[in-house]
Each structure stands twice: as structure tokens, then as C-alpha cells.
Amino acid sequence: MSEAVIEVRAVRKRFGAHEVLRGVSLTAHQGDVVAIIGASGSGKSTLLRCIPLLEAPDEGEIVIGGERLDPANRHQVERVRATLGFVFQSFNLWPHRTVLGNVIEAPVHVQRRPRGECVAEAEALLAKVGLADKRDAWPNELSGGQQQRAAIARARAMRPRALLFDEPTSALDPELVGEVLRVIRALAEEGRTMLIVTHEMSFAADVSSRAIFLDDGVIAEEGPPGQIFRDPATERCRAFVRRHLERHLGR
């Protein structure tokens, strides 16, 4: 078995009186595509945000590439964040930079790589997500689907060892979901290490190598997609998946 890229160990996170994560552990190895599913409020986004310490866990450990993160060590956290690509539900492109400016921002200013090299690489990444002709556009001139594809190119520009997707299609109009899913699927087929929080059940069933069903802050079920999406062991998971697949087929 290859070395673990991401390890989450017994993480707990509380917002006020509500404990969102109640001891969650997961491991992602090189090339794993882990789908994280669960109802709204089950803690799946919080779990994903805990990995680069965008949220600091109250208890437990985050280990990235064998290195245990210390939330008090800002320098280490910043260095490790630069090795993970994060894709947000609401895209979060920088509105004051063009599409190309968004993609080269971190490689040039965080990784301090030569600008010419970053631009060439960014253009290739934009071509890959079908936005070669939008390099000089401002984010507010793009559709949601285009913004999210640009955000994926931005996340990849750091040459991350893993990509984290936080409900990447939940803020999109239904007709724009497909173009973003296609980009993510292509990345999965290249063997990239990815964690995907999503409500797109059939997509998750298709691309994931492993799925995790989060329920009320704990992992209620975990296994290969064939089990989670077609033959869940727990009644909660069965009901959840059925509800979502029905909704999907219904639309």
C-alpha cells in the first residue's frame, strides 16, 4: 500500500453547542478518489474544511503526507495548505484578477515560481478545462460553470498532491453541472488523489474508488462505491442514497 496522502484522525469539531464532527477518521492514499456523502448538516463540508485547517479541529489530528499539522504553527499550516488544492462551492475566484491572474496568483506569489513558467502552465490548465479563450476575462463575466472550471484550474496550478472539492456543483444552475463534473471526472481518470463532497450520487458512484457516508458527525458507512450506492449495509445510508437517486432521476 502506498503512503497515505491525507489522514484524518479522530477529529471532533464543535460550533457553539452543536458538535458537527464527533470523532471522524479517514485516510486517502495516492490515487484515491474518495466521495463523501451525507445529508445537509451531517458535517461533510466541515470535515473537508478541517483538512487544510480552514476550520481548526477541536480534537484529533490532521496528517498530510506524513506530517502532523500543528494549528499553532502558522508557518507550517501555510506551507502545507499550498500542497492541497481546494475547490469551493461558491468558486471564490478573486474578483479583481482576470482568469489567468487567478490561476497564476498562488504559483507566482506563494510558491515564487518564475512568472513565465506559471503563465505557460496556467494556459495549459485553462485549455484543459475549456477556458483557453477566457484567459483575459474577469470572473464576473463568466457563467457559474465557467467560474468553477477556472477555480479548478487555479487549484491545480499549485501542483497539489490532492484536490479537495466542497460541493463543487451545488451553487450551479442544473444545466451547468455537467460541464464541471466532466472536468472532475477527467481528473479522476488521470489518477489524481481527490476528496469530493457532493450530492451528485450517480456521479459519485461513477468516479469514486471509495465512498464515505457521514451521518450526524460520524462515519456511518464506508466502502467501495458498489456497496455504498447499490447495496448499503445500514438502513440510514440505504434511505439516503435512495432518496437522492430518486431525486436525480426525477429531474
Binding site: P52, L54, E78, R79, V80, R81, A82, T83, L84, F86, F88, S90, F91, N92, L93, W94, P95, E105, A106, H109, V110, R154, M158
Partner: peptide, 11 residues
């Protein structure tokens, strides 16, 4: 979100 994106890339 713009600030969060900056944190996420390790700024």
C-alpha cells in the same frame, strides 16, 4: 470567499 481562497492556497 476571496479571503478564504487566499488562505486555502497558503498565503
Amino acid at each position: 470567499g476571496a479571503v478564504e481562497a487566499g488562505r486555502a492556497v497558503g498565503m
